[in-house]
């Protein structure tokens, strides 16, 4: 037991974490996946979207918002930090907040900016660049980690994920083809574990 290297990498807190991995071959597929997952989200859910510039955080958020039945257009919230999408009238679906914390530094600044107003039990809150204010969020939340299969096939530290099945992007002529992404959904806390269970079931049934 003590010689298992994977075990050493995992802090004990992760034992309550539960993860699900999906792959997407295109921006359209990422939106479709988001839409499926968005249908299952409930008021009070907090979804933290993690990944580098160009990973497709806003693209995935567009799918989530569509699945949640809120009215777009869903664009990057980089300028105003927070976009608000209202549900279609009469649907009874929640308001969706879409935040981009790239320009925030630290939990204190996030709270001064008014983060708690968006962490509303009646709304669903999607957050890009949550790493900028890592300690600002409730313990119960759903992480979505988006990784790009890079040209060199290097995905950095993948933890317990399997690297071998990644398809490298190619460049043909001047065009870049291949937009393969790996999305890892991790539930922290009971509420998010329920949600992840429903997502796992829905994706498996498809």
């Amino acid at each position: 037991m003590y010689t298992d290297p994977a075990r050493h990498r995992q802090p004990t807190a992760r034992s309550v974490r539960e993860c699900l991995t999906c792959e997407s071959a295109s921006a359209e597929a990422t939106i479709g996946l988001g839409e499926q997952i968005g249908r299952l989200l409930q008021p009070g859910d907090i979804v933290l979207l993690k990944g580098p510039l160009g990973a497709g955080k806003t693209t995935f958020a567009q799918g989530l918002v569509r699945g949640l039945g809120a009215l777009g257009p869903v664009t990057s919230p980089s300028f105003t930090l927070a976009n608000e999408y209202r549900p279609a009238p009469g649907t009874g679906r929640p308001v969706v907040y879409h935040l981009d914390l790239y320009r925030i530094s630290g939990a204190d600044e996030a709270w001064q900016f008014g983060l708690e107003e968006y962490l509303d039990e009646r709304a669903v809150c999607l957050v890009e660049w949550p790493e900028r204010a890592a300690d600002a969020f409730p313990l119960d939340h759903l992480d979505v980690i988006i990784q790009i299969a890079s040209l060199t096939g290097d995905l950095g530290d993948l933890g317990d994920l399997n690297e071998s099945d990644l398809v490298r992007n190619r460049i043909v002529g001047d065009e870049i083809v291949g937009n393969r992404r790996r999305l890892t959904l991790c539930a922290h806390g009971a509420r998010s574990r329920d949600r992840l269970g429903a997502i796992r079931q829905a994706l498996a049934m498809k």
Partner: peptide, 14 residues
């Protein structure tokens, strides 16, 4: 313009 940004990123990475 999101795809264009990503395309630049891929060029710089490669």
């Amino acid at each position: 313009f999101s795809g264009l940004k990503t395309a630049v990123l891929r060029v710089v990475e490669s």
